[in-house]
Amino acid sequence: MMKSIKKLFSRKNKSPKSIRTTTSESGSEAQGPCETDNEKVVRAYVQKLNDHDMDGAKELIADGCVCIFTKADNMELEWTELAAEMVRIYDAFPDFNFRFDSSIDERKSDGVVVWSDVVPNGHHTGKPYGFGPCPAIETSGKYAENSPETIYFHVNEQGKISKKVIECSGDMSGPPGLYTQIGGFPLM
């Protein structure tokens, strides 16, 4: 498994095409003029996440989809586990979104759609937020912005996302990054 992930990342800069996109004020992105079907699936999925529409996002996910976090020693979560955490994040960060001003690339050799420079962010103005077994942090109003991520979406032949590999460029990543920024993990 690790070997295949390293192989995937080693081809990072060999993408045959790039589509420039722009972000609107609402955080949604304009569709590129030459998008492939797989790129459209990825764009629709990210839009569903930004709309906090987990039911709509689920429609774009294949059964058994796994999410791999490279920053956390290639920790794997089933999509259903990630979806449950996203609901907790939405409840705690009502304006949470994935901000982006980047291109989507599809690698023709392996069908992987790559979206780089995706920045998870939001204000902790909703419910208290706790990560895993850690105590919930009372609503703080603090703004949390994770480090930029590159997300590798594997889209199957049925047009569903079958795997996501999330590679973060900095220390603040995933739910632990949000939790840290609002006051969790004070001894770190």
Rank of each mutant, 00 (worst) to 15 (best):
residue 26 S to P: 05
residue 26 S to F: 12
residue 27 G to Y: 12
residue 28 S to Q: 14
residue 28 S to P: 01
residue 28 S to A: 13
residue 28 S to R: 12
residue 29 E to K: 13
residue 32 G to H: 11
residue 33 P to L: 08
residue 34 C to F: 13
residue 34 C to N: 15
residue 35 E to G: 06
residue 36 T to D: 08
residue 36 T to Q: 02
residue 36 T to V: 04
residue 37 D to K: 15
residue 37 D to P: 12
residue 38 N to L: 03
residue 38 N to H: 12
residue 38 N to A: 11
residue 39 E to Y: 02
residue 39 E to A: 01
residue 39 E to G: 00
residue 40 K to T: 07
residue 40 K to Y: 00
residue 40 K to W: 02
residue 42 V to H: 03
residue 43 R to P: 02
residue 46 V to D: 10
residue 46 V to T: 11
residue 47 Q to M: 10
residue 47 Q to R: 13
residue 49 L to W: 07
residue 49 L to G: 05
residue 51 D to Y: 02
residue 52 H to T: 07
residue 52 H to F: 03
residue 53 D to H: 06
residue 54 M to F: 13
residue 54 M to C: 10
residue 54 M to V: 14
residue 56 G to L: 04
residue 56 G to E: 09
residue 57 A to F: 07
residue 57 A to K: 01
residue 58 K to C: 06
residue 58 K to H: 07
residue 59 E to L: 08
residue 59 E to Q: 13
residue 60 L to N: 02
residue 60 L to W: 03
residue 60 L to Y: 01
residue 61 I to A: 05
residue 62 A to I: 00
residue 65 C to L: 01
residue 65 C to S: 06
residue 66 V to G: 00
residue 67 C to M: 13
residue 68 I to V: 12
residue 68 I to H: 01
residue 68 I to L: 06
residue 71 K to N: 10
residue 71 K to T: 04
residue 72 A to C: 02
residue 72 A to V: 04
residue 73 D to Q: 11
residue 73 D to I: 01
residue 73 D to T: 01
residue 74 N to Y: 10
residue 74 N to W: 03
residue 74 N to R: 09
residue 75 M to D: 01
residue 75 M to S: 09
residue 76 E to F: 01
residue 77 L to H: 06
residue 78 E to D: 09
residue 78 E to F: 03
residue 78 E to V: 00
residue 79 W to H: 05
residue 79 W to S: 07
residue 79 W to G: 02
residue 81 E to G: 14
residue 81 E to V: 04
residue 82 L to T: 08
residue 82 L to Y: 13
residue 82 L to S: 09
residue 83 A to K: 11
residue 83 A to S: 12
residue 83 A to Y: 02
residue 83 A to D: 06
residue 84 A to C: 02
residue 84 A to L: 10
residue 85 E to Q: 12
residue 85 E to H: 03
residue 87 V to Q: 15
residue 91 D to Y: 04
residue 91 D to G: 14
residue 91 D to S: 15
residue 91 D to E: 15
